[in-house]
Design a protein around this nucleic acid. Structure first.
Lengths: 170, 170
DNA sequence: CAGTAATTTCAGTAATTACTGATATCGTTG
DNA sequence: CAACGATATCAGTAATTACTGAAATTACTG
């Protein structure tokens, strides 16, 4: 009574679909649209070196529109790479070789944003001593985590260098 | 043409309101409703030792309903304390003495959830070697950050013990 | 223990946001 | 440079979510 029709479709293996879905729900909590999460998840989970938009619309049962927009979003966030090889019409997409690093960077930026806001609040004439104390504590906390997280990332990257096997075409 | 009427209201100082608003926008990014963010922000920024729901509905121009629900949310999240002193009808609310610690804990829980999902994905029969490698890397990353964040919190708490001045009533 | 003030619950609504599908644009190929 | 295939854009819609305000519940008071 809700779905119009179209249940006559080539789908990806149900097992995979399930995992894709759980990933996308996770990503949703980080604030991005479910369809974006699905695409990201699929690109993480697939063995195919590259995937086209047409394939994504097909596999994920999405419109060309949302695939295009979500791909672009993931691209600008640095989670997905677009590979437009000349001599080919369709662009190819694959997951960024190390999306975690990109995600880390965004987190660090988030902390900086937080610090900025706290700083502004502290300079507000209207706030009193109690609030000031709370804000100072919060600022100290975020500054601490800011450097700790950066250090932690560096350490982890040193211990876990990217295994490089830039795959061959098609 | 949108606002019905009711612009005849006692408001908190515009300077404060502005900061409250910027905080609430920040909190919105962490996924909770703007009104919840406003309440939390106000409780952080006020000098008053306790605030009642009635005062919040008034100051923040919100309905009794949303104040009640949001207060309850903030309470269960551990960001806000309800102080129901016998001999008083109205409950009093104040910000948790150290909400940052609560926030940290929630973050750590988030990391654990992420690890769980990755674990489940890894046991999926359908995924191949490339995906497995990516998932292992992701898992290693989150495990690393999980412990690093916990350590960082402990260190910070040691360096920044809570200054205790549990304030007097009213 | 009746009366009342405060809080919670809940149904309805307003506003936001993701998504679709049609159209426009861009880029490659013959 | 014409034709076509692929991607981007955009307006409309479906679905979700925050919020309101009234009614129900709970808890304190005389």
């Amino acid at each position: 009574m809700e779905e119009p029709v179209k249940n006559d479709v080539p789908l990806m293996s149900p097992g995979l679909a399930e995992t894709v879905e759980s990933f996308s729900l996770m990503f949703e909590q980080f604030g991005f649209p479910r369809m974006g999460g699905r695409i990201f998840a699929f690109l993480i989970l697939t063995e195919r070196p590259y995937v086209t938009q047409a394939e994504l619309t097909d596999l994920l049962q999405a419109s060309t529109g949302s695939v295009s927009t979500m791909i672009r979003l993931l691209e600008t966030l640095g989670f997905v790479e677009r590979v437009s090889l000349p001599g080919h019409r369709r662009d190819r997409f694959r997951v960024h070789p190390d999306p975690l690093v990109e995600m880390s960077k965004r987190r660090v930026e988030g902390a900086i944003h937080m610090i900025d806001i706290i700083e502004k609040a502290r300079h507000n004439k209207e706030i009193g001593p109690l609030a000031t104390e709370r804000l100072e504590r919060a600022e100290s906390y975020y500054r601490h985590f800011h450097v700790e997280m950066e250090l932690a990332l560096v350490r982890w990257l040193e211990a876990n260098p990217l295994p490089e096997h830039e795959v061959a075409d098609e």
